[in-house]
């Protein structure tokens, strides 16, 4: 298939970027979206142009490294799919496809489609863990966890931290990411001692990073490759309110 790609090119953090149009032929419908960019980059390298920078790692949809806004939708048109697992059979021959980086003040563009997601690290550092000497892995039945709690925790823990929720949110909010971590640890017995302070500290780090506030529009969960439900935001609000009421 033949495609026209319009890609955001920006040489470094300070540069003014712009959309640049590229024509590309001989694309197989079995290729992933990242493989199309690989093919394009080979072309660009052959003609002496700078290849398009983009983040990628596992290419199995589980690491959260890749991420770009494809035709205005984070990770592209296929639901529950990362850009690396998006195959070209979902596009038509002759399509024009717009590719842009995540757009948020908290995610400055480093180069082309690569953004600095360090703000997510700062949110995790603020409380996205339990303060316990973990040692070696305990026996699985050492601390009994009711099945529904384990399921809820696992559902939230499936977050790969790709940042699509921020990219899609009309408010540029990272509430789905932050809330997924809060809901995950808050659902398990090991997370209880720091539950209230964790929610408050992570929310504080979220707000400090210049992310917007949540307005519950649900754009985030629609594009989330792991299908993190909007209910985690309610779990986070619950814990934040509990923290405020109890004063810790």
């Amino acid at each position: 298939m033949k495609l026209t790609l319009r890609i955001w090119r920006q040489s470094d953090r300070e540069a003014r970027g712009k959309m640049v149009t590229y024509k590309i032929d001989d694309i197989s419908t079995d290729m992933s979206f990242l493989e199309v960019l690989d093919v394009l980059n080979e072309q660009l390298t052959a003609t002496g142009e700078e290849p398009v920078a983009f983040d990628h790692d596992c290419r199995e949809g589980i690491c959260g490294a890749c991420g770009m806004v494809i035709n205005g939708v984070a990770h592209g048109p296929q639901k529950l799919t990362t850009a690396c697992q998006l195959h070209m059979r979902h596009f038509k021959d002759g399509d024009t496809i717009d590719v842009e980086p995540w757009r948020a003040r908290a995610f400055p563009v480093v180069k082309d489609l690569v953004v600095d997601r360090g703000a997510f690290d700062r949110i995790i550092q603020a409380g996205g863990y339990i303060s316990a000497p973990t040692g070696s892995a305990p026996d699985a039945h050492a601390t009994p966890v009711p099945k529904p709690d384990a399921d809820a925790a696992f559902e939230a823990a499936a977050c790969i931290g790709c940042g699509a929720c921020v990219a899609a949110c009309p408010n540029g909010s990272a509430m789905l990411f932050t809330a997924a971590k809060v809901a995950h640890l808050g659902a398990l017995p090991q997370g209880q001692p720091e539950r209230a302070s964790r929610a408050a500290a992570m929310l504080h780090a979220h707000d400090e990073a210049d992310f917007g506030g949540c307005t519950n529009t649900g754009e985030c969960t629609a594009v989330c490759p792991k299908g993190i439900p909007l209910t985690v935001i309610g779990a986070m609000n619950h814990d934040v309110l509990g923290s405020a009421i109890r004063g810790r």
Partner: peptide
């Protein structure tokens, strides 16, 4: 929170 907007932005779900 979003100083630079998207060139291509359809409505998704909201």
């Amino acid at each position: 929170a979003r100083p630079i907007g998207y060139a291509h932005r359809p409505k998704v779900q909201g």
